[in-house]
Design a protein around this nucleic acid. Structure first.
Length: 261
DNA sequence: AACCACGGCAACCGCTGTTGG
DNA sequence: GCCAACAGCGGTTGCCGTGGT
C-alpha cells in the first residue's frame, strides 16, 4: 500500500543544484516565502525539482544564518554528548547548534567525529608519524581498550575515554537541556525543529527537566544521570556497540571501510 | 603521469508522524 | 475513525577531489 509519489519523477531534475537553480529558489522564497507547501513551490518558482529537494536545498544551503566551516571543540562535545544520550537523533542535536543542520552534523559524525571517538588511526592518506590522538584524549591516558562499559548488555565492550568523558560533571562543559517530550518520540510539528533539513528549533534551555527516555526506545535511560555526572552510559546498547566496536564497522574489509561509517 | 582507493559531502530515498478534510 | 497529503527524519548512495603508489 504505497503512497503516491510526491512529484512526477519523470519530469523532475535530480542531482547537484546549479547556481541558477539556487538563485531561482532563493529569490522565490525570499519574495514569497515557502507558503507552507513545498510540493507546489517548485512549480510556482519555475523549477523542475521535487518539492522535497527544494526544501532540502533551502534548509541546508540557501537559508540565511547558516554556519559554515569546521566544527568547534564545543560543538564536538555537544554532538558527542547528545549522541551518547539519545543516539542518532540528528535533528535534536542540530537544534542545539545554531546554524548547523542535521545533515551537516550527520556527515560530520559519520566522517570524522566517530573516528575521533574511537581513536582510530588516521586514514591511509596521512603519514603514520602524524598519528592523531582522539579528540580531548590526553596522551597520557590509556588506549580505548582499557575502558569498558558496565552498562547492561555492554559489559566488557571497550569504550573510548572520550565517550566516557561525557559523564564528567556538568561543570566541565555545559550541556544543553532537552525537553523530555522531544526525546521521547518524534517532534511534533508545533515545535519548529531543526531538521535535515535544518530549520532552527526553539528549545527551552531554562528550567531543568528530569529526562527519562521512553523505555521502548532507549531502555529507560535517565538522561540527567548521563549528563550530570553518574558514570552511566545508559545508551541504547546497539548504538554504543556500533560506536565502540570498530571491528564490526571498520575491519570488514574493503566494503566495510567504504560504507561502514 | 597515470591509476587506484578512499574520504567527504551533497543529495536522494523511503519511512513515519502530523494534519486536515 | 479513516485516509490522503504533506512535512520531517535518518539512512544510504553516488560523485568528486585528494593522496598514495
Amino acid at each position: 500500500m504505497g503512497r503516491a509519489p510526491c512529484c512526477d519523477k519523470a519530469n523532475v531534475k535530480k542531482g547537484p543544484w546549479s547556481p541558477e537553480e539556487d538563485k531561482q529558489l532563493k529569490e522565490y522564497i525570499e519574495k514569497h516565502g515557502t507558503g507552507g507547501n513545498w510540493i507546489t513551490l517548485p512549480r510556482k518558482a519555475g523549477l523542475r525539482r521535487c518539492g522535497k529537494s527544494c526544501r532540502l536545498r533551502w534548509l541546508n544551503y540557501l537559508r540565511p544564518n547558516l554556519k559554515l566551516g569546521d566544527f568547534s571543540d564545543d560543538e564536538d562535545r555537544v554532538i558527542c554528548s547528545l549522541f551518547a544520550a539519545i543516539g542518532s537523533r540528528w535533528s535534536i542535536i542540530a537544534a542545539q547548534l545554531p546554524g548547523r543542520t542535521d545533515n551537516d552534523i550527520k556527515n560530520y559524525w559519520n566522517t570524522k567525529l566517530k573516528k575521533k571517538l574511537l581513536g582510530l588511526p588516521p586514514s591511509h592518506r596521512k603519514p603514520h608519524h602524524h598519528q592523531q590522538q582522539p579528540l580531548f584524549f590526553p596522551s597520557t591516558l590509556e588506549t580505548t581498550a582499557s575502558f569498558s562499559s558496565s552498562a547492561p548488555g555492554l559489559e566488557g565492550i571497550p569504550i573510548s575515554p572520550y565517550l566516557l568523558s561525557y559523564s564528567t560533571p556538568a561543570s566541565a562543559f555545559p550541556l544543553p537541556q532537552i525537553p523530555a517530550h522531544q526525546i521521547g518520540g518524534r517532534i511534533s510539528h508545533q515545535q519548529s525543529c531543526s531538521s535535515d533539513d535544518g530549520i532552527s528549533t526553539q528549545i527551552c534551555n531554562g528550567g531543568r527537566e528530569h529526562l527519562v527516555l521512553d523505555n521502548s526506545l532507549y531502555g529507560g535511560l535517565e538522561i540527567e544521570k548521563l549528563l550530570l555526572g553518574e558514570r552511566s552510559l545508559g545508551c541504547n546498547s546497539e548504538e554504543i556497540k556500533a560506536i565502540v566496536c570498530p571491528s564490526s564497522v571498520y575491519l570488514d574489509g574493503k566494503d566495510g571501510a567504504r560504507r561502514g561509517y
